[in-house]
């Protein structure tokens, strides 16, 4: 299957039990080679060095744990301390992948990484993945909607298209939600460009 299918990185920390039920339709469909990054550190590891080749699609969760990388841990704690908003490390990483910088809220922090190994890796990821189609699947999708529309360049798209790419997570999502998102991204970005 790998080789023929689209390579997908699902950046999501709850794939073990809560969201595992969304996976079978994707695996049984067989058109997508799905891998998961469970935290920010894993995401950087996958995107900066994937021996099986570059990913074709990225799916982001906005609230992502930091993982082992100390800079992410510091960032996460700093944002959590502010208390007004959730840390939304996933949103920051999405912003970085697309634009080469974090959101306005995190810009100062990202600047401090410029000459550090993590900063270099993130820049490399930005260069490789800024144009790779991405979708969002998070409980904070509604909350960050306007930001996400800009980051993913969906300003000109209809609401229907935006809704297909920006998925709000909630209890009772159909089992086929992830598969539908992947199919839509594939059709929208790959068929359109051909």
């Amino acid at each position: 299957m790998p080789g023929k299918s689209l390579r997908v990185l699902w950046i999501e920390d709850k794939t073990q039990l809560e969201l595992a039920y969304l996976v079978p339709p994707v695996l049984l469909d067989g058109r997508y080679d799905l891998e998961v990054a469970r935290d920010a550190t894993e995401m950087v590891n996958y995107l900066s060095n994937s021996p099986r080749g570059k990913f074709d699609l990225l799916i982001f969760d906005l609230d992502l744990p930091p993982g082992d990388w100390n800079e992410f841990v510091i960032f996460y704690k700093e944002f959590e301390k502010q208390g007004k908003e959730p840390a939304m490390l996933g949103l920051e990483l999405l912003s970085f992948v697309r634009t080469g910088q974090g959101t306005r809220r995190g810009q100062q922090y990202w600047h401090s990484l410029e000459k550090k190994p993590l900063g270099t890796l993130l820049q490399k990821i930005h260069q490789e993945y800024s144009k790779v189609p991405a979708g969002v699947f998070s409980i904070y999708t509604y909350r960050a909607r306007s930001q996400l529309i800009k980051l993913l360049g969906l300003e000109e798209q209809s609401k229907e298209v935006q809704n297909q790419i920006l998925i709000q997570k909630h209890a009772g999502l159909p089992r086929t939600t992830l598969l539908r998102l992947l199919r839509f991204l594939e059709k929208f970005y790959f068929s359109k460009n051909q």
Binding site: Q16, Y21, V23, L27
Partner: peptide, 18 residues
Amino acid sequence: EHISQVQLAWRLATYIDL
């Protein structure tokens, strides 16, 4: 063949479905 290589949580969910 492919499913037997994915993480356990996904295997469980997929085997139920399958």
